[in-house]
């Protein structure tokens, strides 16, 4: 696995490997994501987008995109992370590589407020269209008490 990370680092100097997790992980600069993903899919058999989500690290002022890739059928796993600016989270969309990213990116946009450049149909998916805010952000206020006052 380390071979994979080194090989990628030769092509994309901005990549960092992460040690000690449950699976090999890469941290990729946002502007290189699309190229790295293409490389992973075409040259390294990671042909399946297993999951796509985001985590809000409010204290560190960043939103982390987390992609989990799977090599089907041998089931090797790989985690790819992208750090985004919490104020203006923007990253390129993966829909061109995996159509599976379509709904999942919409979900992340809806709940986390990440803008996916190049997404064909970026609108809310789980929340209603007129909803304001992005519920999975840590500073989202749960307004259960609002009506009581």
């Amino acid at each position: 696995m380390n071979g994979l990370i080194e090989e990628l680092q030769r092509l994309f100097p901005g990549i960092q490997g992460e040690e000690g997790g449950d699976m090999p992980a890469l941290v990729v600069p946002a502007d290189q994501l699309l190229a790295v993903m293409k490389e992973l899919k075409e040259r390294h058999d990671f042909n399946f987008l297993a999951d796509l989500t985001a985590v809000d690290f409010r204290d560190e002022k960043r939103i982390e995109m987390v992609y989990h890739l799977l090599a089907v059928p041998e089931a090797r796993e790989l985690r790819v992370k992208v750090n985004l600016n919490r104020q203006h989270p923007e990253v390129s969309s993966l829909t061109a590589i995996w159509p599976a990213a379509d709904v999942q990116e919409r979900e992340v946009y809806d709940l986390m407020g990440v803008i996916f450049q190049g997404h064909p149909n970026l609108k809310r998916i789980l929340c209603p269209d007129d909803f304001t805010g992005h519920p999975l952000r840590k500073d989202f206020q749960l307004n259960a008490e609002e009506g009581r006052e």
Partner: peptide, 27 residues
Amino acid sequence: GFYLVSDGGNKPYRLHIHSPSFVNLGA
């Protein structure tokens, strides 16, 4: 799939659920 981020506390910092129906319905 379950993606779990822990900050060392007694509650999950982030729990993401990758549900097969959601993706299958997307197709």
